[in-house]
Amino acid sequence: MTRTLTALSARRRHPLAVVVLIALALLLVGGLYAALAPRAAEASTATASADDVETGKKLFLANCATCHGLNAQGGGVTVNGDTAQNPGPSLIGVGAAAVDFQVGSGRMPLAQSGPQAPKVNKIRFSQEQIDQMAAYIASLAPGPAIPTEEQLDVSTVNDEQLARGAAIFRTNCAMCHNFAGKGGALTEGKYAPSLDEASAKHIYEAMLTGPQSMPVFNDTTISSEDKTAIIAWLTQDEKRPDPGGLTLGSVGPVSEGLFAWIAGIGLLIGCSVWLGMKSS
């Protein structure tokens, strides 16, 4: 007569109760995230096609004009009397550096609208195509040029220049990008990206052109040599060693505190439990 039905033993609390509870909790977390996540507008896409300013113009018309206007004057294109959906800024005078940075880092063309254009690893254009578009934009009005090899050569930077670069970084950059270039939050979901993956050329171009929220640091406000020094400090890990061990993200005391609780208190409580257990 006696059968073992383990599942039924929990009959006082309905087994579904746990499932329902978890579902409710997930819903709550999801809802909160949805409510708190920065709102993204509609996505826009573009496709690539085919040399020098003329080719660049063609590329521009095909890929960029929907938002930046047929003559790169900004404000998008009016189709059938409707105003443009995604009005972009004017590109007249932004220079070749801006094009190379935006397209070369995958930020443009914009894949998905959000608080700001993220860096994308998959670049849709060859460097040649990017240079062609850059040439077209540069032909419209004078603007910052793509930095030269010499400007990006960090091997010439001596220790004193390096220290000066680091000091300029702390005053001009660290407030957004953090002391170690790990990035940080701005208002309303915008952010200063981490500089870990950024190439020397893109860092230089970003300073020069001030993409998105970032202000402009032209060669008269931060000299070309100082920019090279900043890049030397940022891109050469061996120039800024961290002999203390693993850095926990280099975001300051927040991760350290969390680690002290989880690993420190966690391990010590584990040892306490072992100490308090009866030996077998």
């Binding site: 000066r164 000091a167 300029i168 702390r170 005053t171 001009n172 001030g210 202000p215 402009v216 640091f217 032209n218 008269t220 406000t221 931060i222 000299s223 100082d226």
Partner: peptide
Amino acid sequence: TKDPEGGRIRASDLGLGSVVH
């Protein structure tokens, strides 16, 4: 003067969107 490098600043040094400490 510029912080930390020093040196006076001309109004024409600043482009639109520039910031100088």
